[in-house]
Amino acid sequence: MFTLVDLVQPDNLAEAYQILSDKRNNTILGGCAFLKMGSKRIGTAIDLTNLNLSYIREQAGFIEIGAMTSLREIETHTQLREYFNGVLPKSVHNIIGVQFRNGVTVGASVYSKYGFSDLITALLALDTEVELYKGGRMLLVDFLNKPHEKDILVKVWVKKNNRKAAYLNLRKSASDYAVINVAVSKLDDQWTIVVGARPSKAAIAVRASAALSKGKLSVEEIEGAAQRAAEELSFGTNARGTSEYRKALCQVLVKRGIMEVLHANQSDN
C-alpha cells in the first residue's frame, strides 16, 4: 500500500524545487497512474497543476511541450499529427486507453526513463531536448544517459525541421507494454535509429545510424543497418520476450522503419 504524508500545490517552480529537495521521499506527481501499484512511501507529494505546464506550443523553431501535458493531448494535437509523419501521436496511440492518456503526463513519462516507454523512443528519434529546472536544457539522449538526480522536468523541446520519421512496435496484445519499439528518422541524409523496450530504456543505434547515413540505401545496406542495430544494442529477457527474440524483432522492425521513412520521403517529393 502506498502512503502519502502531505500534498502541496506550489505556485512557482522555485518553491516546488525547494520542497522536492527538502526530503528524500518528497516526490513530484505525474498522472499517478502507477501510484497505487507499489508500496511507495511519499513524504510530500508535489502537484505542479498550478504552474501552467500543460501546453504544446510552437515558437522559435521549436515545439515546446510542457511537462504537465497529457499523452492524450500529444495524440490529438493537430500539428503534431502532421510533423515528423505524426510519429509522436503514433507512439502514444496504444497506451492503455483514452482515460489513461488523459491522466498520464509527458513530464512523468520522460523523467521516469521507463524502459517500456513508447514516447521516449519516438522523441529520441527527433531533435529533442529536455529542460530541467536545476539541470537546465540538455539533449534528451544526454538526459537519458545521465545518472538519476532529483530535479523537475519543466518542458520538452522538439526542433521543428523536415525530419521524416516512423514508429513501430510489437505488442503481445494491443494494450500491453511493447515487447520492443523502434523509431527511425531521417533529416537530409542523416538517419537515426532508436530502439526501446529492450526491455531497458530506449537507445540510439549509433553505428547502424551512421552506416545508413553514409550509404546509398540499397536493400542490402538497409538490411545491413538493421542487422547492425540488432548487434550493437543489448537486449534483455522478461515476461514479454527473450533477448534473442527482441534482437530478431529489432532487425525486422528497424528494416521496416527505414522502408517506411523512405516511402514517406518519396511520397513527399
Binding site: 486507453g97 503481445k172 496484445s173 494491443a174 494494450s175 500491453d176 507494454y177 515476461a239
Partner: peptide
C-alpha cells in the same frame, strides 16, 4: 498489466 485479458482491439 501482467495478465492481459483481450481488449477490444484484440
Amino acid at each position: 498489466m501482467q495478465y492481459k485479458i483481450p481488449c477490444r482491439k484484440d
